[in-house]
Write a protein that binds this DNA or RNA. Structure first.
Length: 825
RNA sequence: GCGGGCGUGGCGGAACUGGCAGACGCGCUGGACUUAGGAUCCAGUGGGGUUACCCGUGGAGGUUCGACUCCUCUCGCCCGCACCA
């Protein structure tokens, strides 16, 4: 056996595995299925360390579970639509499809070089017509189910990306991709009614026991459920109009001293008409509407309110209060109108003080004597209703119910639940995406493309001369079509779909990637789904993970899939850092998977990445740490080589003594620990350290005696178990070593070793003796020594006796096999 | 501000339901083998102290025979949301 040459053995075994179609997954009712999935990548060009990390984690699981006799599906594919392809197309004067295809080819090669065990027959590519045909089909399903609609709305526009964005894709007022300031724009766009599923998306989070708490909380917050009431205020001089407002505190209704409307509120124009405030207000409205979300919602943006000259009428007491227009009121939340209760809402309080609006206390805390004039902050807690007519004396919690019920009787309001979640804007004014399958006909209106005409294909001749790839509106040949209903000339929708649509169902397509009569075969999907373990970055906590849940629920409702949730367990892997910073070109601290594979081999890279940190935590890249892992693999390599030679020589003994028992103990302890760490805890770092300890124990055993005194049977057993335990982590080296040990069949087709509890039993154990909790000695006792004997032995210890002299023993605590604590005074 | 997480050697990180703090690896020190070694093997390695001693898991308290682990307060860092009525 030569020196460890990863380049050679890795390439050899990868070819071998491919030839034998090792990782092919087939439906098999006799086995328990297990779906391991890593978030599929955007084919940006090449893999980075984040990719290597997520694939390493997934592959360990997949290989481990196969050895545990699960029927494992482990697929991979490409989230291939998206803006970078268009930018690259202009830069390199190449069609986005071509650019994407080249990247996929390259990245796939890189993945294979990492030795990841994918079933490539299931590969999907969201930009392929036979995939996006079904993305379009699913859009039409949504349309049929009244979940897709077009509306004119004030939407988020990113000038730099030249497209609109969904709410989830705006971070702090900036575009999630390019960080440009997002502007409001009034456009007619397609939406998916995810809000119809708000309640279920929220409550079903409870089912997801194996999701990280922080992800669930982020989704919970994003969905933002509030219980309260919708209340109708009358308008003085406008008997046919009313202002509807949402509040979580109807118990404070008597404390309303003003109303504020969002600048976009449809009534604003009519209200100011004919008042002296008209010009000023409309001017203000205009100005605010042009502001970016960032400016408008930033913390230091001052709250501005302008009187409209009109008054609203409080439905419970007939009081007239001024109506204002305010920049801080959002049209998109609730009804776009807020009732101002300064005494019991901090924002209203500040606003009221600024504009010298009255503060009217209607909730008194127990024993409190709040007064509107002297308060310096709002009282938002519970209390008793005061100044509230017939409700005086009612507790505030009860008041919420009572007041709303009263309003219901008066036909002035009702109980209402409001969500922060807004509908999902899916139109994109870009070329490289799945065209929205809709046709506009002058006589028939909006007509969905019939299923038989799918896919609506992208024009392949792309114009690359400008500074960006033109959207579909640019291609006359694409737009011109005939109405499927009346046959007259008609126009196609020219927007494409948000790429998050394509990634909202890809995990279902893997079940039957070649299915031609549906997005997926329900039998296959019902066998494999849900994904048992999903692995990916935390950046998708709300975006992808919420959308995919939504799609799954819609498909469930359509009777296409049994699962109501797509991902049973979720692992949000940490980031890869180096020198305390995220790896980035600008910082010059990038280490590429390619370099590592070239210099040390894939096994070393995988091992390091798994060993350096538990998967969900951030990982600090260390070149020296990589060296260490490489050294460890070489150590195993040499050990295998030496032992194989030794076994062939035949020299050895059949005798088994204390050394052999100790080695066996190490073997079984390692099996136990590695199994537990991988299966129950997902702590691969400690699993690997357990394998290292085992290797150290084998070295120690070989060191302890002359070669002639080695028990070959025990030694071989130890080595073989080591190789089996290592197989998921360093698949190539393990495979090579397994064959060196004389086996013909792959190590990856072996069963995972079981440990024998009997082999873990020790005859004697070391027990710590404490006096008042401080360690004062150690004794070795028989493992089955009972507590009384243990205590006696501890007190009989010479050193302990000395220390106890003249002291009164108050109590003796014994923990079998661990310690004795003697409490003295 | 609200919500979540994290603070352990020179470094990455261990310590399962309270029971030997620092597993494993890196780095460092010494030794062996060597013409040589940045290869390999062996030993040592939390801090202080010449001894069978003391101190030590961000800090201060508490519960307990016993606390990295549980409780209270506090400091520092990271992430998410942020006028949501």
């Amino acid at each position: 056996m030569k020196n460890y040459d990863p380049a050679q053995i890795e390439e050899y075994w990868q070819k071998q595995w491919e030839k034998e179609d090792f990782y092919r997954a087939e439906k098999d009712e006799s086995k328990t299925k297990y779906y391991v999935l890593e978030m599929f990548p955007y084919p940006s060009g090449k893999l980075h360390m984040g990719h290597m990390r997520v694939y390493s984690i997934g592959d360990v699981l997949a290989r481990f579970l196969r050895m545990r006799n699960y029927n494992v599906i482990h697929p991979m594919g490409w989230d291939a639509f998206g803006l970078p392809a268009e930018n690259a197309a202009i830069e390199n004067n190449v069609n986005p499809a071509e650019w994407t295809a080249r990247n996929i080819e390259h990245m796939k090669m890189q993945q294979n070089r990492l030795g990841v065990s994918y079933d490539w027959r299931r590969e999907v590519n969201t930009s392929a017509p036979d995939y996006y045909r079904w993305s379009q089909w699913l859009f039409l399903l949504m349309y049929q189910r009244d979940l897709a609609y077009k509306k004119k709305a004030n939407v988020n526009w990113c000038n730099h990306c030249a497209t609109v964005l969904a709410n989830e894709q705006v971070e702090k007022g900036l575009c999630w991709r390019c960080s440009s300031v997002v502007e409001p724009r009034e456009l007619e766009q397609w939406f998916l009614k995810i809000t119809d599923y708000a309640e279920r998306l929220l409550y079903d989070l409870d089912i997801l026991e194996d999701w990280p708490e922080r992800v669930k909380i982020m989704q919970q917050h994003w969905i933002g459920r509030s219980e309260g009431a919708e209340i109708a205020f009358g308008i003085k001089d406008f008997p046919d109009e009313e202002i509807r407002t949402f509040t979580t505190r109807p118990d404070t209704l008597f404390g309303v001293t003003y109303m504020v409307l969002a600048p976009e509120h449809p009534l604003v124009g009519r209200l100011v008409e004919g008042t002296e405030h008209k010009d000023e207000v409309l001017d203000f409205v205009d100005r605010v509407r042009k502001e970016s979300e960032l400016d408008r919602t930033s913390e230091d943006a001052p709250k501005i309110g302008l009187f409209t000259g009109r008054h609203a009428v409080n439905p419970v007491n007939g009081k007239e209060v001024p109506i204002l227009v305010g920049n801080y009121v959002l049209m998109a939340y609730g009804t776009g109108a807020v009732m101002g209760v300064p005494a019991h809402d901090q924002r209203d309080f500040e606003f009221a003080r600024k504009y010298e609006l009255p503060v009217r206390v209607v909730i008194q805390p127990e024993g409190g004597d709040l007064e509107g004039e002297t308060m310096d902050e709002a009282y938002v807690g519970e209390g008793v209703m005061v100044n509230s007519g017939q409700f005086n004396g009612t507790g505030s919690l009860e008041g919420i119910k009572k007041v709303t019920e009263y309003l219901e009787q008066q036909n002035q309001g009702d109980f209402r639940v409001t969500y922060r979640l807004r509908d999902w804007l899916i139109s994109r004014q870009r070329y490289w995406g799945a065209p929205i399958p809709i046709i506009y006909c002058d006589s028939c209106g909006t007509v969905p493309v019939p299923e038989k005409d799918l896919p609506v294909e992208l024009p392949m001749e792309v114009e690359l001369s400008g500074d960006r790839v033109p959207g579909l509106a640019h291609y006359e040949s694409f737009i011109k079509t005939t109405c499927p209903e009346c046959g007259e000339n008609a126009r196609r929708e020219t927007d494409t779909m948000d790429t998050f649509i394509c990634s909202s169902w890809y995990f279902l397509r893997y079940a039957s990637p070649d299915c031609t009569d549906a997005p997926f075969n329900s039998d296959e999907a019902n066998y494999w789904m849900p994904v048992d373990q999903y692995i990916g970055g935390i950046e998708h906590a709300v975006l992808h993970l919420l959308y995919a849940r939504f799609f799954t629920k819609v498909l469930h409702d359509a009777g296409m899939i049994e699962a109501e949730e797509p991902f049973s367990r979720l692992l949000a892997q940490g980031m890869v850092y180096k020198d305390g910073a995220k790896m980035s070109k600008s910082k010059g601290n990038v280490v590429s998977p390619d370099e590592i594979v070239e210099q040390y081999g894939a096994d070393t890279g995988r091992l390091f990445i798994l060993f350096a940190s538990p998967p969900e935590k951030d990982l600090d890249w260390s070149d020296q740490g990589v060296e260490g892992c490489h050294r460890f693999l070489r150590r195993i390599w040499r050990l295998t080589a030496d032992c194989v030679e030794q076994f062939l020589s035949g020299e050895g003994t059949a005798e088994s003594g204390e050394n052999e028992a100790a080695l066996e103990r190490s073997v079984h302890a390692a099996i136990k620990k590695v199994t537990y760490d991988v299966q129950e805890r997902f702590n691969f770092n400690t699993a690997i350290s357990a394998i290292m300890e085992l290797v150290n124990a084998i070295y120690a055993y070989r060191q302890a005696a002359d070669q002639a005194d080695h028990n070959h049977e025990v030694l071989r057993e130890a080595l073989e178990k080591t190789v089996l335990l290592l197989a998921p982590f360093a698949p190539h080296l393990a495979e090579e070593a397994w064959h060196q040990l004389g086996y013909k069949e792959s190590v990856h087709k072996q069963f995972w070793p079981e440990y024998d509890p009997g082999k873990l039993i020790e005859n004697e154990v070391e027990v710590v003796i404490q006096i008042n909790g401080k360690i004062r000695g150690r004794i070795t006792v028989p493992a089955d020594c009972d507590q009384e004997q243990l205590a006696d032995q501890a007190r009989n210890d010479e050193r302990i006796g000395e220390l106890l002299a003249g002291k009164e023993v108050v109590k003796v605590i014994t923990v079998p096999g661990k310690l004795v604590n003697i409490v003295v005074r």
